Structures are given as C-alpha cells and as structure tokens.
Amino acid sequence: MELHVKDRLYFPQLLPQQNTFMEYAMKRAILKKVGLTAEDQEKFEIKEKEDGKGIVWNIEKDMAQPHAVEFTPDELEYIKKGCEALAEQPCPDDFWALVERIYNTIPKK
C-alpha cells in the first residue's frame, strides 16, 4: 500500500484507542511502519505553520515519492476494526478515502 504524508498523519486516528496487550503491540508495530521519521520531515520539508495551526509539506515531493508499506493479514484486520469503530463519526473526505483504500487492500475471503 502506498501512503502519502497526509495518510500517515491520519493513521494514528484509525487505530483503536483501547487494546489488549497483543493489540497494543500490533498498534506499535503498525505506527512504526507508517510513522514519519526525521528523514521524512527533512525530505518532504514538513513544518508546523507559523500560526501553530497545522502542518505543511512539499506536496510535489510527497506525490512523487509515496511511502510503500505492507501489512500482515492480522494488522489489516486490526486496522479494519479501528475503521469500523469510527464509521459513524464525521471526518474529512480524504480521511474516508484512506479508509476506502485500506478496505480495498484487505483480501476478499
């Protein structure tokens, strides 16, 4: 799955906030895969806005160099669980577009 900076910023919101210990470990592994590193911050020129209300980055570089990540079937089920818990909450369209891409990644049974 290819993720852009905005997707990677949204990802922590997708995951359940209460977990068993095993789910907590899986959540940490997922966040490690998708998290933004110091190198990403430099490469994509990620900065906080001067007014402190939001983040900006170089969108051209982001679109040209998406972050490729592979999730295990268990991780995808865990992510799906988090998405389903949010289904009734209002969120921006691009957030739901990420959820849709995740669902399209899950193998059909």
Rank of each mutant, 00 (worst) to 15 (best):
M1H: 07
E2L: 11
E2F: 07
H4W: 10
H4K: 15
V5N: 12
R8K: 09
L9K: 10
L9D: 02
Y10S: 08
Y10G: 03
Y10E: 09
Y10R: 06
F11T: 07
F11M: 15
P12M: 08
Q13S: 09
Q13C: 06
L14T: 01
L14Q: 05
L14V: 06
L14C: 10
L15M: 04
P16K: 09
Q17M: 10
Q18R: 14
N19L: 10
N19T: 12
T20C: 08
F21K: 12
F21E: 14
F21N: 10
M22N: 11
M22I: 04
E23R: 04
E23F: 07
A25Q: 13
A25I: 07
A25S: 14
M26E: 12
K27W: 00
K27H: 09
A29K: 11
I30M: 03
I30C: 05
I30K: 01
L31M: 14
V34Q: 10
L36R: 05
T37K: 13
A38V: 13
E39R: 11
D40E: 13
D40L: 07
Q41Y: 02
Q41K: 12
E42Y: 09
E42M: 03
E42I: 01
E42T: 08
K43P: 00
F44D: 05
E45S: 14
I46P: 04
I46W: 03
K47I: 03
E48W: 01
E48S: 05
K49A: 09
K49H: 05
K53F: 12
K53N: 13
K53H: 11
G54R: 05
G54Q: 05
I59Y: 07
I59D: 12
E60A: 14
K61A: 13
K61S: 04
D62N: 06
M63L: 15
Q65H: 12
H67N: 00
V69S: 03
E70R: 01
E70S: 07
E70H: 03
P73T: 02
P73W: 01
P73F: 01
D74I: 00
E75T: 01
E75C: 05
E77R: 14
E77H: 07
E77T: 04
Y78G: 08
I79W: 04
I79K: 02
K80I: 03
K80R: 15
C83T: 06
E84L: 14
A87E: 14
E88P: 00
Q89F: 07
Q89D: 12
Q89E: 15
P90W: 09
P90N: 12
C91Q: 15
C91V: 02
C91M: 13
P92Q: 04
P92I: 00
P92D: 09
D93Y: 03
D93M: 04
F95Q: 01
F95R: 05
F95N: 01
W96S: 05
W96Y: 08
W96F: 04
W96T: 09
W96A: 03
W96D: 02
A97E: 15
A97I: 09
E100D: 13
R101L: 06
R101C: 08
I102A: 11
Y103P: 09
N104S: 13
N104D: 15
I106N: 10
I106Q: 13
P107K: 08
K108H: 13
K108C: 06
K109S: 12
